[in-house]
Simulated scan of single mutants.
Amino acid sequence: MDGADGSCPASLSSPPPPPLHPAIAPLTFLLGKWRGEGEGGFPTINSFAYGEELLFSHSGKPVITYTQKTWKLASGEPMHAESGYWRPKPDGTIEVVIAQSTGLVEVQKGSYDAENMIVTLHSELVGNASKVKEITRDFSVVNDGLHYVVRMATTHHVLQPHLKALLWKV
C-alpha cells in the first residue's frame, strides 16, 4: 500500500475479467464455481459420501480451466483433487486433459450439446495407472444443478459407475 489513503497503487489492482473467447461461448453454462455432494463406490472399495467443489474458468483463450477438490463430509478432511483444461471445438467435440492428485492422468475426447447443456467424455488415454483402463464422464445441467457421473473400468472390472454428484453454482 503506498497511496496516502492506504490503498494499493492502481498498477496492483486486479485486471478486469478477460472477454469470453468465442470458442468457449457454447460452454458458458459450466463457467463458475459449483459446490455440492456426491457418492462413490466400486467393487474394490467401500461406498462413501463426499463434498465437492468444481471451478470452471477462462482467461480469454479458447480453453476452459478446470479444478476439482473433494473432502469427507463428516470431518472436512481433503480426499481428492484434480485439474486440467477443456478445449471445445466448433463442431461440438471437446478435448480434455486432467491430472489427478494420485498421479493418474487422463486424455479424454467427447462432445457437447450447448442447447441441452450436456458434456460427454470418454478416455482416449489413462496414464500412470496400473489398474485403471477406461474412464467416462457425463455432465449435465438440469434445473440449475450440475449432475455428473464418472464410470471406470479396471483390469478386473468392466466399465461401471464409480462417482456421481449434484452440485450448485455458488
Results as ranks from 00 to 15, higher is better:
42 F>W: 14
42 F>D: 08
43 P>N: 06
43 P>D: 04
44 T>L: 14
44 T>M: 11
44 T>Y: 10
44 T>S: 15
45 I>Q: 12
46 N>F: 12
46 N>E: 15
47 S>N: 15
47 S>V: 07
47 S>G: 06
49 A>W: 12
50 Y>G: 02
50 Y>N: 02
52 E>T: 05
52 E>C: 06
53 E>P: 00
53 E>H: 09
54 L>N: 05
54 L>C: 07
55 L>V: 15
56 F>W: 15
57 S>I: 04
58 H>S: 02
59 S>I: 08
60 G>L: 06
61 K>H: 08
61 K>I: 02
62 P>D: 08
62 P>A: 12
63 V>R: 01
64 I>S: 00
64 I>W: 02
65 T>D: 10
67 T>I: 07
69 K>D: 07
72 K>R: 14
72 K>C: 06
73 L>G: 03
74 A>C: 09
77 E>H: 09
77 E>Y: 06
79 M>I: 15
80 H>I: 11
80 H>F: 13
82 E>R: 12
82 E>K: 10
83 S>D: 09
83 S>A: 10
84 G>L: 00
85 Y>M: 00
88 P>K: 00
90 P>W: 03
90 P>M: 04
90 P>S: 15
91 D>K: 02
91 D>W: 07
92 G>M: 06
93 T>R: 10
94 I>C: 02
96 V>G: 00
96 V>K: 02
96 V>F: 02
97 V>M: 03
97 V>P: 01
98 I>S: 00
99 A>M: 08
101 S>A: 15
107 V>K: 11
108 Q>R: 13
110 G>I: 05
111 S>Y: 06
112 Y>L: 01
113 D>F: 04
113 D>A: 06
113 D>R: 05
114 A>W: 14
114 A>G: 07
116 N>A: 11
117 M>Q: 13
117 M>D: 03
119 V>H: 08
120 T>V: 11
121 L>A: 05
122 H>T: 11
122 H>E: 15
123 S>M: 06
123 S>T: 10
124 E>R: 05
124 E>G: 04
125 L>S: 11
125 L>A: 07
126 V>Y: 10
127 G>R: 05
128 N>H: 12
